[in-house]
């Protein structure tokens, strides 16, 4: 029988892979955004697992709203990225120090 812990463990592994990807990546902001999507999906996994095991539908409602906000966030982030690439001709994380001075 599959317990709640196995789902939570899978979600924790995906979450730590997403964190590792954000920290390890110094070349490409698109990969960082994809890792953010991985983090969101692991959190949604937790919500759905608890919703199933506690017989409470509120978890799925929350996942619905998280999906909405994540889609909006991805669209705005990619728009910012396109505008940034137009100005700087680069999307490397290391080049983004324009705001420093």
């Amino acid at each position: 029988m599959l317990s709640l812990q196995s789902y939570l463990t899978l979600s924790a592994i995906i979450f730590s892979i997403g964190i590792t990807g954000i920290v390890i990546n110094r070349k490409n902001i698109i990969i960082v955004m994809m890792c953010t999507e991985l983090l969101l999906i692991s959190v949604n996994f937790n919500f759905i697992a608890f919703s199933h095991f506690m017989q409470d539908l509120a978890g799925q409602i929350f996942v619905f709203f998280i999906l909405t906000v994540a889609a909006a966030e991805a669209a705005i982030g990619l728009a910012i990225l396109v505008a940034l690439y137009r100005n700087k001709k680069s999307i490397s994380v290391g080049d983004l120090n324009k705001l420093r001075n």
Binding site: Q5, T9, A12, I13, F15, S16, T20, V23
Partner: peptide, 19 residues
């Protein structure tokens, strides 16, 4: 190495907490 260490620590903490 720092990133992999960070990821392993987070995963170990969460999984240990659950089990």
């Amino acid at each position: 190495p720092i990133a992999i260490f960070l990821g392993l620590v987070i995963a170990a903490e969460l999984i240990a907490l659950y089990w």
